[in-house]
Amino acid sequence: MKKTLVIFLGVTTILLLSGTAIGYAMMNKEVTITFSDKEKTVQTDVLSGSLSDALEKEGFDPAKLKSQYKPSVEWDSPIKKDGTKVNLACNCSVSLKVGGKKEKKMKTTEPTVGDFLKEQKVKVDKSDQMNATMDQKITNDLAIIIDKVEKRVQKKVEPIDYDTKKKEDPDLPKGEKKVAKKGKKGKSIYQVIAIYKNGKSMVTDKKLVEKVDPVAEVVMVGSGEAKETAAEKEDTQLSSGSRIAGLKYKKTMAAETTGYTATGNKTATGTTPRRGTVAVDPSVIPLGTRLYIPGYGQAVAEDTGGAVNGNVIDLFFDTREEAIQWGRRNVTAYILE
């Protein structure tokens, strides 16, 4: 009797233990579900269900999720392992605008902005400006804007005009001028730093890095008495009444004269300039007028000039030295008959 009881208890024990094993095998499986575009994590369990069942249990619409996400396991396959981790990658719509160019729209399952830019082979420099961070999650309809910022360094040279200093010289006839020292322009050298955003200048900074001072020009201005030349003395002696140097004249005029020499051009009247050719303002002295200029001699008005205005007469000389020697003189010009 005792032996029979022991066997019965043993069988009962085996049956109980076997039931426990079967019950354990039928336990719910814990599942952790993450979304690539959300911070929220879903933890649930299923007995013998699928990912779709687990999500539906937590109040999600599997059909809607299937159109938006790509899972790391099959949607409708049974979950067999306890502690299964599932990631739902969002197939998100993203717009991308780089360097002010036209916006592009596309789909991506990359989890972060950095991963998406790497996928698109877009390089972002340290100086560039972006409206998102590299570790920011990709969400549906995310707009990413990258402004390309560039710094350009250049040198700019600006000339500095020289001053002209005038000094009186009693050894020069009054009114005459002579350059004693030629002037020389200076320069300011700047470093210009320009910031460009998408190819357009936004900020410019100019810094002086070097300066070369100009050299002033020194001009001697005659303050002495005008010297009368031998020819002028002769003219004075010969002039009497309406004659000058034996030539009849009909009127006189005060004139400012300057010397010039050959330029290779014909005169305004088509002649080749020679000594005795003078340039005049035709509104004051008509072309073809015969003149007498003390110290120069007889002349004919055959030419004009851009700087010959009013009572100004330019006298032609055969050489540059003669023209320079004459310089600028105020004389009484005689209009011959």
Results as ranks from 00 to 15, higher is better:
residue 138 I to N: 00
residue 138 I to A: 03
residue 139 T to F: 02
residue 139 T to K: 10
residue 140 N to D: 15
residue 140 N to S: 11
residue 140 N to W: 11
residue 141 D to S: 14
residue 141 D to L: 11
residue 145 I to Q: 13
residue 145 I to R: 12
residue 146 I to E: 07
residue 146 I to K: 07
residue 146 I to W: 04
residue 147 D to A: 14
residue 149 V to P: 01
residue 149 V to G: 04
residue 149 V to Q: 04
residue 150 E to A: 06
residue 150 E to S: 03
residue 151 K to A: 06
residue 154 Q to P: 01
residue 155 K to A: 03
residue 155 K to W: 00
residue 155 K to G: 02
residue 155 K to P: 00
residue 158 E to P: 07
residue 158 E to A: 12
residue 161 D to H: 05
residue 163 D to H: 08
residue 163 D to M: 07
residue 164 T to L: 00
residue 164 T to H: 05
residue 167 K to M: 10
residue 167 K to G: 05
residue 168 E to I: 08
residue 170 P to K: 13
residue 171 D to G: 08
residue 171 D to I: 07
residue 173 P to E: 15
residue 173 P to T: 14
residue 173 P to S: 14
residue 174 K to Y: 15
residue 175 G to Q: 04
residue 175 G to N: 02
residue 175 G to Y: 02
residue 175 G to I: 01
residue 175 G to F: 01
residue 176 E to L: 06
residue 176 E to S: 14
residue 177 K to N: 12
residue 178 K to C: 00
residue 178 K to G: 01
residue 178 K to D: 06
residue 178 K to I: 00
residue 179 V to N: 07
residue 180 A to W: 10
residue 180 A to P: 04
residue 181 K to S: 12
residue 181 K to W: 06
residue 183 G to D: 06
residue 184 K to E: 15
residue 184 K to Q: 14
residue 186 G to M: 03
residue 186 G to K: 00
residue 187 K to I: 05
residue 187 K to A: 11
residue 187 K to Q: 13
residue 187 K to M: 05
residue 188 S to Q: 13
residue 188 S to H: 08
residue 189 I to L: 05
residue 190 Y to N: 04
residue 191 Q to G: 08
residue 191 Q to T: 14
residue 192 V to N: 11
residue 193 I to Q: 08
residue 194 A to K: 10
residue 195 I to E: 13
residue 195 I to S: 11
residue 196 Y to C: 01
residue 198 N to P: 03
residue 198 N to E: 05
residue 199 G to N: 03
residue 199 G to M: 01
residue 199 G to L: 01
residue 200 K to C: 07
residue 200 K to E: 15
residue 200 K to T: 13
residue 201 S to K: 14
residue 203 V to R: 13
residue 203 V to A: 10
residue 204 T to Q: 15
residue 204 T to C: 08
residue 205 D to Y: 10
residue 207 K to S: 09
residue 208 L to R: 04
residue 208 L to Q: 07
residue 208 L to V: 02
residue 209 V to D: 00
residue 209 V to L: 02
residue 210 E to S: 15
residue 210 E to T: 13
residue 211 K to Q: 14
residue 211 K to N: 12
residue 211 K to A: 10
residue 213 D to M: 13
residue 215 V to G: 09
residue 216 A to H: 09
residue 217 E to L: 06
residue 217 E to T: 09
residue 217 E to A: 12
residue 218 V to F: 04
residue 219 V to E: 03
residue 219 V to H: 07
residue 220 M to S: 06
residue 221 V to Q: 12
residue 222 G to N: 05
residue 222 G to S: 05
residue 223 S to H: 04
residue 223 S to I: 05
